[in-house]
Design a protein around this nucleic acid. Structure first.
Length: 471
RNA sequence: GGCCACGUGGCGGAGUGGUGACGCAGCGCUCUGCAAAAGCGCGCACCCCGGUUCAAUUCCGGGCGUGGCCUCCA
């Protein structure tokens, strides 16, 4: 089946052909570790996890390399470290912040049902590679040293007139536009307003490393060079897919692409550039000032991770998504149903319809439609049921048993299951003696506790009653 | 100001040049002591204005609205 993916650079869906089917390579920009990840951060993590799973399905689990970096050098980290650990030397404080945040991040995304990437490189471990790249760029005439900074020159790149892509091609803007729109306060050491920092001097107390290109004082890397370095180290000079949030297109990915292509004199960095859309909360843009800043951690207190996962996948990854409680309730209800029907099914192969939907540029909404169809077929036979379950497993759902799933909901609601069972037994007895007034009273009592009863009959025709927490 | 994306039924959300999305909610029926759950069935849509066309929600142009980016925010 032909996988087609939307390429931001080409601005169209393109057939995906790996450079090497034995080793399909994908790089996704990961978190800067200074605070709990918010639900917006979860979007690329979930979206590219689905792509990772699809690629593993298509090319084999051992033939896909997924790199997602961890950025552990950043001003925000330094600020947080100074604030949270004022008594410690900055370097130690920074390590504490990044270690704690990285752990939180892993716990959160594990709960979302995401596989760990093949490699999760940390920026600070690739300083040597960054220096190498910077020196290549200086040697090639694409970058220059000024006042202990190293700056990249997009003008030089576009003047090179070679196989190199045009600077601005990814973000679809021209250098002229960027010059016109440049801020007034351009740093004095820049030759052109559009030049950006590859390396800069460290301020006292900041983490610092030996500088490249003959600069005597120690320094620290600019924002974009880390990803060029880590992608190069783990995926080579060219690879298949580069992903991240749409806000990263400019300047981050444009600059990454420029650095890598100029360093290797290459026309491409990644063959396909993919970007997920933004997320809003209850119709508003998420911001700390509006007070609607939602962390993954907070949501996980109220909802199983798979509910967040399904909720995220209801919308196509390139479309804006409005994150609402109503949507979560709907997703939770759907998963309750799927769990009840398929959680205990084993074996089987994922549905072709689901794979086909994913192969159309990760059309997860269409995929969910297919799942609903499979769900309806599942009650008609065991073969259908295992296909349904296998499809859900492939997508990162059904990681718990039905019992675990139900129990989690009961625990969250603080309901005493023994007391419920005893009340149900009383009600069953009342019904048996046709004391419907009493049985209805007990049902009302349970309803007041937020419990919904489901009456049925067992194989022998005897009445049975199961129960659920109402949302 | 420049560039880009999006605008589908009560809600969420695909898709398509010409009768079906799908899910939730709603309504009806079956089941039930009555309900709930479950099963079956039903209805309701394509921001506005032009244009192209036998035919436009779908293509083109304009407008309006929402959101994003424009140097360290997924």
């Amino acid at each position: 089946m032909q996988l087609r993916l939307y390429d931001t650079l080409a601005r169209e869906k393109r057939p995906f052909t790996p450079l090497d089917p034995e080793n399909v390579r994908m790089y996704v920009c990961g978190p800067t570790v200074y605070d709990f990840a918010h639900i917006g951060n979860a979007r690329p993590v979930i979206v590219f996890d689905v792509l990772f799973r699809l690629l593993r399905h298509l090319y084999g689990a051992d033939h896909v390399t997924y790199v997602r970096n961890i950025t552990d050098v950043d001003d925000k980290i330094n600020d947080r470290a100074a604030r949270d650990f004022p008594g410690l030397p900055l370097n130690q404080a920074i390590r504490k912040v990044t270690e704690v945040t990285e752990k939180q991040f892993h716990e959160d995304v594990d709960a979302l049902g995401c596989l760990r990437p093949t490699v999760e490189p940390r920026a600070t471990e690739y300083i040597v590679e960054m220096r190498t790249l910077i020196e290549k760029l200086v040697a090639g005439g694409f970058a220059y040293v000024a006042e202990d900074h190293v700056l990249f020159s997009p003008q030089a790149m576009n003047a090179a007139n070679s196989v190199l892509p045009r600077y601005g091609a990814l973000a679809n803007r021209s250098l002229d536009e960027m010059i016109a729109g440049a801020r007034v306060d351009v740093a004095p050491y820049k030759r052109d307003a559009t030049d950006f920092v590859l390396w800069k001097p460290a301020k006292p107390g900041e983490p610092s490393w030996p500088s490249p290109s003959g600069i005597k004082t120690e320094g620290r890397p600019g924002w974009h060079i880390e990803c060029s370095a880590m992608a190069w180290k783990h995926l080579g000079e060219q690879f298949d897919i580069h992903g991240g949030g749409i806000d990263l297109v400019f300047p981050h990915h444009e600059n990454e692409l420029a650095q890598s292509c100029c360093a290797f004199h290459s026309g491409r960095m990644a063959n396909i550039w993919m970007h997920n859309g933004f997320l809003q909360v209850e119709g508003d843009k998420m911001s700390k000032s509006l007070g609607n800043f939602v962390t993954i951690r907070e949501l996980l207190k109220d909802w199983p991770g798979e509910v967040l996962r399904l909720n995220m996948l209801k919308t196509h990854y390139r479309s804006p998504i409005d994150w609402t409680v109503k949507g979560m309730e709907e997703s939770a209800k759907t998963l309750d149903d799927w769990y009840a029907l398929a959680a205990d099914a084993n074996g089987g192969e994922p549905s072709q319809a689901v794979i086909e939907a994913l192969c159309d540029d990760l059309n997860t909404a269409q995929m969910i439609t297919s799942l609903h169809g499979l769900r309806n077929a599942a009650s008609e036979g065991e073969l259908n049921r295992t296909e349904f379950a296998a499809s859900l497993h492939l997508l990162g759902f059904l990681s718990e048993t039905v019992a675990e799933w139900k129990q989690r909901k009961q625990q969250a609601s603080g309901i005493d299951a023994k007391r419920v069972d005893s009340l149900i037994a009383d009600r069953t007895a009342a019904r048996a003696r046709k004391d419907f007034k009493e049985s209805d009273r007990i049902r009302d009592e349970l309803a007041a506790m937020g419990i919904v009863l489901k009456d049925g009959k067992d194989a022998d025709g005897n009445p049975t009653t199961t129960w659920e927490i109402a949302r």
